[in-house]
C-alpha cells in the first residue's frame, strides 16, 4: 500500500519542488523585506523565519523516519527501507541547519553562541542519534539486517526523544515560549504570514528531497543487483568454457 503510494506520488514530485521554491521565495520576500522589524529584537528577528521552519521540519522529518521504521519492521518493504534511509539523511541536514541558525540567532539575543537550553540540547542529541543511525547503516554487511537494525535504532530514538526533551526541560530552561500553540497564536499577522509560507516551503522541500533521495537509493540498489547478476553470469559462462 505504502509502496504503491510512494511509486504513485513520485510522478508528481516536480509539483512538490516547484511548490517548495514558490513558498520559500514568497516567505523569504515577506520575511526578509516586507515584514516590520521586531520591537525588542530589531532586524535580528528575521532569522526566525528561517530557524523556526527548519526546526519544525526536522521534527516532521523524524516523525516520517519513525513511522517508516515501524512500517518497515511490520511489512519488510525494501522501498520503505530506502525511504527511511533517505529520511534520516535529510532529517540530519534540517536538524544541523536548525542548530546553526539557532546558534546565530542566540548570539545577538542571548549574547552567546551556545547555551545549555532544553531545545538546543534536545536538537543536539537528535543530531547525535541521527549520526549514529547513519554510521550504523554503513557498518552492517547484510542489507536485510541493515534495515532491521536501523529501524530498531530509529524507533528507540523516537520513543526517547520526548523523554529527552522533558528531562532537559526540567533540568534548565531559557528558551522563549513557542510561537505556535493550541491556545491561539501569540504573534501578529505581519510575522505569521512569512512564517507560514516558510514552514510550508520547508515541508514541501523536505517531501521533494525525500522523493528524490528515495528514488536514488532505490535505483542504486537495483543497479547493484543487476551488476551482481551480470557479473555472476559472465563468471558462470567463463567457467563453463
Amino acid at each position: 500500500m505504502i509502496n504503491r503510494f510512494i511509486r504513485y506520488i513520485q510522478r508528481y514530485k516536480g509539483w512538490f519542488g516547484g511548490g517548495a521554491a514558490l513558498c520559500l521565495l514568497i516567505g523569504l520576500y515577506t520575511g526578509l523585506l516586507a515584514s516590520p522589524p521586531d520591537y525588542y529584537q530589531g532586524e535580528v528577528v528575521r532569522i526566525m523565519y528561517v530557524h523556526v521552519p527548519l526546526a519544525h521540519t526536522s521534527l516532521l522529518a523524524y516523525s516520517v523516519l519513525f513511522g517508516g521504521s515501524i512500517w518497515y519492521l511490520w511489512k519488510r518493504d525494501p522501498l520503505v527501507d530506502n525511504m527511511c534511509q533517505a529520511a534520516a539523511t535529510i532529517t540530519a541536514m534540517f536538524t544541523g541547519l536548525a542548530l546553526v541558525t539557532g546558534s546565530i540567532w542566540a548570539k545577538p539575543t542571548w549574547n552567546t553562541w551556545w547555551t545549555w537550553d532544553p531545545r538546543l540540547v534536545s536538537f543536539a542529541v537528535l543530531l547525535l542519534i541521527l549520526a549514529g543511525y547513519m554510521m550504523l547503516r554503513r557498518l552492517v554487511d547484510d542489507p536485510d539486517r541493515e534495515g532491521k537494525y536501523a529501524a530498531v535504532l530509529a524507533i528507540v530514538g523516537g520513543v526517547d526523544l520526548p523523554i529527552i526533551k522533558f528531562s532537559v526541560e526540567w533540568w534548565r530552561t531559557l528558551h522563549q515560549p513557542m510561537s505556535f500553540s493550541t491556545r491561539g497564536v501569540s504573534i501578529s499577522d505581519d510575522l505569521l504570514v512569512p512564517l507560514l509560507f516558510m514552514s510550508a516551503g520547508c515541508w514541501l522541500l523536505f517531501a521533494y528531497m525525500l522523493m528524490i533521495r528515495t528514488q536514488m537509493l532505490y535505483l542504486t540498489e537495483l543497479l547493484q543487483a543487476k551488476k551482481g547478476r551480470l557479473l555472476s553470469q559472465t563468471h558462470f559462462s567463463q567457467s563453463a568454457q
Binding site: V121, V125, L128, I129, A131, G132, M135, L136, L139, V140, D141, R145, Y149, V152, L153, V156, G157, D160, I163, I164, F166, S167, V168, W171
Partner: peptide, 30 residues
C-alpha cells in the same frame, strides 16, 4: 538491546557507546 545489536556489526566496540550514550541522556540527567 544495543549490546546485542552492535555485537553483530563491524566496529562494535565503538558503536555501542556511540549509539547508547545519546539515548541514555535522560537517565544520566535524572
Amino acid at each position: 538491546l544495543f549490546s546485542a545489536l552492535t555485537v553483530q556489526i563491524r566496529a562494535r566496540e565503538v558503536m555501542l557507546p556511540v549509539l547508547l550514550l545519546p539515548l541514555a541522556v535522560p537517565v544520566m540527567i535524572a
